[in-house]
């Protein structure tokens, strides 16, 4: 009797688990599927699940826009913003975790509060500043802005990771004669590497998907994938095949990257709230 109830519960859980997963994933699946349809197949009613796949949409997308140009911009901006942010955040998080003062908590909360300023509130001045410093429509300019918007969250994540490093290990380093710099580079960083990796991952994802600044601060030269996809949106919205192909191209790298690294990522996302 008990066994039977258990089996039925398990079947229920399996069905529910898969049902919800499929339902949530369906839009992505459908996007990928549609990208392999011809335009006619893409808008057929009722929608077709089985069809002769074609690469014609991809061919057209590549013909119309230089995907590699946008992708390269996205990669450049994401990697640069992440690298600089981590380089700045490591010493800050080290200082907060291992040399706390009365103001540490206040500083951290203030940093996070800067992240809450709606970008649109400062769009005009940032636009004008970028124009005056010739950073408009450059990867450098976009990378700086992305770096600044992500810095508080990166500091916070690293801080929670560093706090998990037992202080005696760093003290042992100090007893062994390590300077602050050696302590940080030779003891702390190797220990916190998994944490730093998942922080970098999150930063890469956030930069990759950042839409507001990339749409407003770039036009052609430095336009990343968010702009690439925007160019396929309004007037030709009804060309579902091309739209899907372009969308798939824009999200595929980060999606695959995210799948591979999700275990790593999740450790960092808990922000110390889960021990």
């Amino acid at each position: 009797m008990a066994l039977k109830a258990k089996t039925s519960t398990r079947i229920g859980v399996t069905i529910l688990g898969w049902g919800i997963a499929l339902w949530l994933f369906f839009p992505i699946f459908w996007m990928i599927l549609t990208s392999f349809k011809s335009e006619v197949q893409a808008i057929s009613t009722p929608p077709k699940l089985f069809f002769m796949p074609t690469l014609s949409s991809y061919a057209e997308v590549f013909e119309r826009a230089n995907y590699w140009h946008f992708a390269l911009n996205t990669v450049t901006v994401s990697v640069a913003a992440t690298a600089i942010a981590i380089a700045l955040a490591v010493p800050a998080a080290y200082s907060m975790a291992f040399m706390p003062s009365k103001r540490t908590r206040g500083t951290l909360l203030w940093m996070l509060s800067t992240r809450m300023l709606p970008p649109v509130g400062v769009l005009v001045p940032i636009y004008i500043l970028a124009r005056n410093t010739h950073l408009l429509d450059t990867c450098t300019g976009l990378a700086i802005v992305d770096m600044l918007t992500n810095l508080p969250i990166i500091v916070w994540m690293l801080y929670t990771f560093f706090r998990e490093v037992p202080a005696p290990i760093l003290e042992a380093g100090r007893m062994d004669g390590a300077t602050r710099w050696q302590e940080m580079t030779m003891v702390l960083l190797p220990l916190a590497l998994p944490g730093i990796a998942s922080t970098a991952l999150l930063s890469l994802i956030l930069c990759w998907n950042e839409a507001f600044w990339s749409l407003n601060l770039t036009s052609s030269h430095a336009a990343p994938l968010t702009a690439f996809i925007a160019s396929f949106s309004s007037p030709e919205g009804l060309f579902f095949g091309k739209l899907s192909a372009a969308s798939t191209l824009a999200v595929a790298p980060i999606l695959v990257f995210g799948w591979i690294s999700q275990k790593q990522l999740v450790r960092g996302l808990t922000f110390g709230a889960v021990k």
């Binding site: 994933f25 749409l215 996809i229």
Partner: peptide
């Protein structure tokens, strides 16, 4: 599958 939408950029998910 459940966590996948997190990796999709907002513009794409909106269009989708």
């Amino acid at each position: 599958m459940v966590i996948s939408p997190f990796f999709i950029m907002p513009t794409v998910s909106a269009l989708l």
